[in-house]
C-alpha cells in the first residue's frame, strides 16, 4: 500500500507541486494585499487570463506529442485583426466567429502537414507560422481597429453574477476556457485520439509499430492548437473590443512556460491539461501580485516566469531520474 502511495506521489508529484505553489503564491499575495482576499480577485484571474488558458490547452496537446507550437500568438492576433475588419464591414458576428475558428484550424493543419510530410522541425515551421499570421494581421490593418458590433459589446460588458459569492461576477467569454478544459480532459482521457497523443510523445516509433495513425494524429494536434488559438483570439477581441496585429506579443512563451510549470514534459508523453490550468493560474497570480503592488514593474513577470520555468525543468529531470531508479 505504501509502495502504491509512493508510486502515485511520484506520478502526480509535479502536478501536486504546481498546485501547492499556486496556493502558496496566492496565500502570500492575499497576506500582502488584502484586496486579493476578495473572491472577485480570484475570478479576475480567469477573466484576465482566459485566453491564456485556451492557448495553453492547445499547446499542452502539441507538447504532449513532443512538438512545440510557436505560432499561437500570431494566430491569436490575426484572429482579432480579421474579426475586427470583418465586423466593421458589417458581417454578422455569427458568421465571423465560426469563420475565424475554421481559419485558425486550417492554419494549424497546414503547419502540421509541413511538419509531418516535410519532416521539418516543429519549432521552425511554427515560428514561420507566427511571422506569417502576424504579417497577415498587419496587412489587414496597420493600426488597432475598434470593434463596435453590438453582440461583441454585449458579451464584453455584461457581467454574470455568481451564486454563493456576494458581488462576485464573471463575463460570458470567461466561461469558454473552463468549458474547453472539460472538453480537453474528455479528449485526453476518454478518446483514442488523446491516448495516441500520449503514446506518440513517449515513443513515436513504438506508436507506429503498435499500429496507431501517428501522422494523422500529429497533424490533427497542430490543427487543434490552431483552433484553440483562434478561439483565444475571439475571446481576446471580445474582452478588448479591438483587433490588432501587435496583440499578445511574446504570449507563446508565457503559454509554454505555463504548460511546463503544469508538469508537462517538453520531451512529450507526460503531463496533463489540469496541470496547465494551474500553471496559468501561477502566472496570473504573479501578474496580479505585481499589479496590486504597483511599484514593482511588469517586466518582473517575465523574469519570474523564466526562473520558474527553469526551476520546473530542473524538478522534472529530478523526478525523471527518481522514477528511473
Amino acid at each position: 500500500m505504501t509502495q502504491r502511495l509512493k508510486l502515485s506521489v511520484l506520478r502526480h508529484g509535479p502536478l501536486l507541486m504546481t498546485i501547492t505553489i499556486f496556493l502558496m503564491a496566492y496565500i502570500i499575495g492575499a497576506q500582502l494585499y488584502p484586496a486579493m482576499q476578495r473572491p472577485q480577485a480570484f475570478f479576475n484571474l480567469f477573466i484576465n487570463n482566459g485566453f491564456l488558458l485556451i492557448l495553453g490547452i492547445g499547446m499542452t496537446f502539441v507538447i504532449l506529442t513532443g512538438g512545440i507550437d510557436l505560432s499561437v500568438g500570431g494566430v491569436l492576433a490575426l484572429t482579432t485583426a480579421a474579426s475586427a475588419a470583418l465586423l466593421n464591414l458589417g458581417v454578422s458576428p455569427l458568421v465571423v466567429m465560426p469563420l475565424m475558428l475554421v481559419m485558425g484550424t486550417a492554419i494549424g493543419l497546414g503547419l502540421g502537414c509541413l511538419i509531418h510530410f516535410f519532416k521539418v522541425q516543429p519549432f521552425i515551421v511554427t515560428l514561420m507560422g507566427l511571422f506569417f499570421a502576424r504579417g497577415l494581421a498587419y496587412i489587414i490593418s496597420l493600426t488597432s481597429v475598434t470593434i463596435t458590433d453590438p453582440l461583441y459589446k454585449y458579451l464584453a460588458l455584461t457581467p454574470i453574477y455568481l451564486p454563493f459569492f456576494a458581488k462576485a461576477y464573471i463575463y460570458i467569454p470567461t466561461l469558454v476556457g473552463p468549458a474547453l478544459l472539460v472538453v480537453a480532459i474528455y479528449l485526453a482521457y476518454f478518446t483514442r485520439f488523446g491516448r495516441i497523443v500520449y503514446a506518440i510523445g513517449n515513443n513515436e516509433q513504438s506508436a507506429a509499430l503498435m499500429g496507431f495513425p501517428v501522422g494523422r494524429t500529429k497533424v490533427l494536434v497542430y490543427g487543434l492548437s490552431g483552433f484553440c488559438s483562434a478561439l483565444a483570439g475571439i475571446v481576446f477581441s471580445i474582452s478588448l473590443l479591438a483587433g490588432y496585429g501587435q496583440f499578445a506579443t511574446g504570449v507563446e512563451l508565457d503559454v509554454i512556460a505555463a504548460v511546463v510549470m503544469g508538469g508537462t514534459l517538453l520531451t512529450g508523453g507526460v503531463g496533463n491539461v489540469i496541470g496547465t490550468l494551474f500553471g496559468i493560474l501561477i502566472e496570473a497570480t504573479i501578474i496580479s501580485i505585481l499589479q496590486y503592488n504597483g511599484t514593482l514593474s511588469s517586466w518582473w513577470t517575465r523574469i519570474c516566469v523564466g526562473v520558474l520555468t527553469l526551476i520546473f525543468i530542473g524538478i522534472q529531470s529530478g523526478f525523471a531520474l527518481r522514477k528511473k531508479k
Binding site: 512545440i68 519549432f123 511574446g250 512563451l253 508565457d254 509554454i256 512556460a257 517538453l266 520531451t267 514593474s297 511588469s298 517586466w299 518582473w300 513577470t301 517575465r302 523574469i303 516566469v305 523564466g306 526562473v307 520555468t309 527553469l310 525543468i313 530542473g314 529531470s317
Partner: peptide, 27 residues
Amino acid sequence: RAKIQPLVATLILMVAGRGIAQLISNG
C-alpha cells in the same frame, strides 16, 4: 552541463531576457 535540450534552454533566456533588458533600463 545541465543537459537541457537547446531549444528549451535558450527559450528560457528568450522569455526572461527581455524582462532582464527592461530591468536594466528600468522599463
